[in-house]
């Protein structure tokens, strides 16, 4: 009886974690049937290259969502940190330009987290507050650049971040994968990671067992800000230039990927494996739509519908699991 139940539990867990993986495989199969150019080495690396920017954003945002909040400010954080990284290079050099951008990204997270924890904000509050922050940072990016694009860097090592390869593998992909592995280990294997889960599952319970809830909430936002800065580097290095609106919609795409991957929006659920699967699903869909020749406006319609559908599935799943 006991063994049987354990097996059942195990199969159930596998089923739940791998439904989206199955969806990804089906999508890839479909895309390869639709177009012969889909399943080529070049196209696959291309997909990875395209998703690495949004992927980094999604990884950071996953921490915030697992911790029970939202971070909608990441889109313009990518724009701003990208602009700073490019435009500061002639003045302070590549290293300091990147360091300063990273600090700015982390500081935006610090500000988000501090505001939200100081008012004991709910999940809903965090959505609105970071949404406000999105607008503020977007405006700052426009003010700094006066609305114009910033021409690219001529530093080879910076361009390498977005365009270089190690062997046959693009460096940006390595950056994304390595970040993902480190972050996954941190959140699933360490005591700090577990505390973030506890906080996301029920912050009141977490507080009453002595977990420094405010500290961990701020940390998740700082990680999200840092990953947005990394995304900013990859983006500006790849296109070799920074535009004040380069990051527009990234927060939307990241949330879509996270929800599609199956991380519950209530917090305290899912791992970065979900995020990666979600990111790849969205990457394959975009790529397939590009190959078939669907216009970018129509692609947005599809993506928006996917987000709505994914949220509905997320809610339904909870409804079925029930409150007992």
């Amino acid at each position: 009886m006991n063994i049987k139940n354990n097996i059942k539990l195990y199969l159930n867990t596998i089923y739940r974690s791998y439904t989206m993986l199955l969806a990804l495989i089906i999508l890839i199969a479909l895309a390869s049937i639709l177009s012969h150019s889909f399943l080529t080495v070049q196209n696959i690396t291309n997909i990875f290259r395209q998703v690495s920017v949004m992927g980094c954003v999604a990884l950071g945002m996953s921490f915030v969502i697992i911790g029970g909040s939202f971070d909608m400010s990441v889109g313009s954080t990518v724009s701003l940190t990208g602009i700073l990284a490019i435009s500061l290079q002639p003045i302070v050099g590549v290293f300091w330009a990147m360091a300063i951008s990273l600090i700015v990204g982390v500081s935006i997270g610090l500000i988000n987290g501090t505001i939200i924890t100081s008012i004991n904000g709910t999940q809903g509050d965090s959505f609105i507050i970071t949404f406000g922050m999105l607008t503020v940072i977007q405006a700052v990016a426009l003010i700094i650049t006066k609305g114009f694009s910033v021409p690219g860097s001529n530093n080879k090592s910076y361009i390498f971040i977005g365009n270089g390869d190690i062997g046959v593998i693009p460096f940006s992909i390595i950056l994304f994968v390595v970040s993902a592995i480190i972050m996954q280990i941190f959140i699933t294997k360490t005591s700090h990671g577990r505390n973030i889960y506890y906080m996301g599952a029920n912050s009141e319970v977490a507080k009453l067992i002595g977990i420094k809830v405010k500290f961990y909430k701020i940390i998740t936002y700082m990680i999200s800000g840092a990953m947005a800065a990394v995304a900013g580097f990859i983006l500006t290095a790849r296109v070799n230039g920074a535009a004040p609106k380069a990051g527009v919609n990234l927060e939307f795409e990241a949330v879509t990927a996270i929800v599609v991957g199956g991380i519950g929006l209530k917090g305290g659920e899912g791992t970065l494996v979900n995020t990666i699967i979600g990111v790849l699903i969205m990457g394959v869909i975009s790529n397939a739509m590009n190959i078939i020749g669907i216009s970018s406006q129509n692609q947005l319609v599809v993506k928006g519908i996917i987000l709505i559908a994914a949220v509905c599935v997320d809610i339904r799943k909870k409804g079925i699991m029930g409150e007992g």
């Binding site: 599952a201 319970v205 977490a206 067992i209």
Partner: peptide
Amino acid sequence: GQGLFINYSIEKNISS
């Protein structure tokens, strides 16, 4: 509301 992570396992609650 304040004592348990109701969606988590017994194990994760005890070790919290």
